[in-house]
């Protein structure tokens, strides 16, 4: 049974087995590889996307469960927060290998959408679900603060 998903503003019919996580629908069925696989069990945050404005781990979210929602992936970020965050990331070259960074940015965009001036503790809470094995944490924290100042 095809499921209709609205991704980055566009409706797409998906014919995947029931229970297939959104992550693999995005990557394997729709060819949207910006959303990454890191653990498959909601531990690393690499697969973070927004569903109705909330960050979720797409690796544990069955695609049929998000039918009728607004799904935004890294490829579809278009808010002002997002642009400022991407610019802040570029300004100090936050990413090293970059593999975790789609997820980091999705989490950071959500943080700043809800909290214009996050404290270190707020950043810890919002970002500790996103592992960066390159350990770019110093710069992620810095870039979030830089972006907050601009917003």
């Amino acid at each position: 049974m095809a499921v209709l998903l609205k991704i980055n503003g566009k409706s797409q019919a998906v014919d995947a087995a029931e229970g297939t996580p959104l992550l693999w629908v995005l990557r394997d069925h729709l060819g949207m590889t910006g959303t990454k696989f890191g653990c498959g069990i909601a531990q690393c945050g690499a697969c973070t996307v927004h569903v109705d404005g909330q960050p979720i781990r797409s690796c544990i979210t069955a695609h049929e469960d998000v039918e009728g929602t607004d799904i935004v992936t890294i490829e579809g970020l278009s808010s002002r927060q997002a642009a400022v965050i991407q610019a802040a990331w570029e300004a100090i070259d936050v990413p090293q290998c970059g593999y975790c960074q789609s997820g980091q940015i999705m989490s950071a965009v959500n943080l700043l959408a809800n909290n214009a001036n996050p404290s270190d503790g707020d950043i810890d809470d919002a970002m500790s679900g996103n592992i960066c094995r390159c350990a770019s944490y110093m710069r992620i924290r810095q870039a979030i603060k830089d972006a907050a100042k601009k917003l």
């Binding site: 990557r27 590889t33 910006g34 959303t35 990454k36 696989f37 992936t73 890294i74 490829e75 970020l77 991407q86 990331w89 570029e90 070259d93 936050v94 990413p95 970059g98 593999y99 960074q101 789609s102 940015i105």
Partner: peptide, 15 residues
């Protein structure tokens, strides 16, 4: 590489 990374455009082995 960073301008591509922040837009999810980098192609890694898994991609």
């Amino acid at each position: 590489t960073v301008p591509k990374i922040v837009r999810g455009e980098g192609i890694f082995g898994i991609d």
